[in-house]
Amino acid sequence: MNPEQIPQLLKQVSYADPRILPEDRQELQGLAALWAGVLTDVPAEFAMWAVGQHYAESPFPIKPSDIASRWRAHVRDRMNRHTGTLEPTRYPELDPDDVAGFMHTLRAERHAVIMGRAEPTPLKAITGADAVPDEVQERLDRIGRYMPDHARETLAQYRPVRAARERLIRTGQPDPLAVPCPWCGAAIDQACRGRRVTPGRDPESKRQGIRAPHPSRLDAARTAA
């Protein structure tokens, strides 16, 4: 906004709060200069809209910082939804080697998005085809895996419990380690434990890990599934 636009904005505010307009002309000029300095980057139409929004939500008098804060939030929201990729189909005349021209176009596009003359451009999908090719789908299915399949198979002999769980999951069977064991009390993700009871000793001190889950744990996993 410029100083010439501020009096109209203050008049808009005075409809909700008449105290905003001082009677002295010099005070009014000083107030307008102050508001113009704070709102120098805010479009006049947005400032008018922000006044209405403020008094629809708050009973307190509006300050120029309230309008400026709303404008910054508006800019941040639109730019967070804009990728700004400068697609060649939209800018066929743009030369990738022309750095100055690229930056000028980028700034112009962002300014248009901020001012509402253009809508934010969201990030497009990895492919625009109706059907994803098998090779691409296979790669997508592997995204996020910490370990490739060949490495997993090599390490299976050193991780028998983990390998057994993965085999069950791949074949669609319930994972017994996903539930606690009702027989030995093993917690989730822990292997079942054998119980050796010695007279005069705490049976808990003699529990040892075993590889095969107890039958009751298998039943509990099937029930949970």
Rank of each mutant, 00 (worst) to 15 (best):
M1Q: 06
N2C: 04
N2E: 12
N2T: 12
P3I: 07
P3V: 10
P3Y: 02
Q5Y: 06
I6Q: 03
P7Q: 05
P7W: 03
L9I: 10
Q12I: 08
Q12R: 14
V13N: 01
A16F: 13
D17R: 12
D17V: 15
D17W: 04
P18S: 07
R19C: 01
E27N: 04
L28D: 06
W35C: 02
G37H: 05
V38Q: 05
T40E: 11
D41T: 10
F46D: 01
A47D: 01
A47K: 03
W49A: 11
A50G: 07
V51Y: 03
G52S: 09
Q53Y: 05
Q53K: 09
H54T: 04
E57T: 08
E57M: 08
S58N: 15
P59F: 07
K63Y: 10
P64A: 14
P64C: 08
A68Y: 08
A68R: 15
A68K: 15
S69W: 05
R70D: 06
A73Y: 12
A73C: 08
H74G: 01
H74R: 13
H74W: 12
R76V: 00
R78L: 14
R81P: 05
R81M: 12
H82S: 08
T83P: 00
P88V: 12
E93I: 05
L94P: 12
D95W: 11
D97G: 11
A100V: 14
A100Y: 07
A100R: 13
T105Y: 03
T105V: 15
L106P: 03
E109H: 13
R110E: 14
H111I: 10
M115C: 07
G116R: 12
R117E: 15
K124Y: 04
G128W: 07
A129E: 14
A129T: 15
D130R: 15
P133K: 10
D134Y: 01
E135N: 07
V136M: 12
Q137G: 06
L140Y: 01
R142K: 07
M147L: 13
T154M: 04
Y158T: 05
Y158R: 08
R162W: 02
A163H: 03
A163L: 04
I169P: 00
I169G: 01
G172A: 08
P174K: 11
D175Y: 03
A178H: 02
P180Y: 11
C181M: 06
C181W: 06
P182Y: 12
W183Q: 14
A186W: 02
A186R: 05
I188T: 14
D189K: 09
A191E: 09
C192A: 08
G194D: 10
R196N: 09
P199W: 04
P199E: 12
R201D: 09
E204N: 10
S205P: 00
Q208E: 14
G209R: 09
I210M: 11
R211N: 05
P213L: 03
P215E: 08
L218C: 02
T223D: 09
A224H: 06
